[in-house]
C-alpha cells in the first residue's frame, strides 16, 4: 500500500466565456498543477471547456442537509421578493 494516496480534487469548468464555472466532477492528483493537467485531460477531451478551477475537496465547507429547514425554508414565504407579488393593471406592459 502507498504511504500516502493522492488527494481528491473538485473540478470546475467554464464551458465558454460568458458562462460561469460549473462543477464537473472530481479526480485524484498529487498537487494543484497535476490536478489542473488531469482535469484538462479527463474533463475537456471533447472541447468542453475554456477555463478550469481546481480545489482540494477537503477545503470545501458544505452546509448540512439537517439544517435545511432553518437555512432555506424561511425564504419560501417571502413572496414579495418576486415580481408576481405585485398587482398591476393589464394595460401596463413591460414592467
Amino acid at each position: 500500500m502507498s504511504k500516502k494516496n493522492w488527494p481528491l480534487w473538485e473540478i470546475f469548468v467554464r464551458s465558454k466565456n460568458g458562462l460561469e464555472h460549473r462543477h464537473f466532477g472530481s479526480l485524484h492528483a498529487a498537487d494543484a498543477e497535476m490536478a489542473l493537467e488531469n482535469a484538462r485531460d479527463v474533463y475537456t477531451r471533447r472541447n468542453e471547456g475554456v477555463s478550469i478551477w481546481v480545489t482540494e475537496s477537503k477545503h470545501i465547507t458544505a452546509s448540512n442537509p439537517k439544517n435545511n429547514g432553518e437555512l432555506f425554508e424561511p425564504a419560501q414565504d417571502k413572496v414579495y421578493r418576486h415580481p408576481t407579488f405585485y398587482d398591476l393593471p393589464d394595460e401596463v406592459k413591460h414592467m
Binding site: W6, L27, H28, A29, M34, E37, N38, D41, V42, R45
Partner: peptide, 11 residues
C-alpha cells in the same frame, strides 16, 4: 500508474 495518468498518456 493511475487512471488519471493513463488518460493523459493516451491523449
Amino acid at each position: 500508474p493511475s487512471l488519471e495518468t493513463d488518460i493523459a498518456c493516451t491523449n
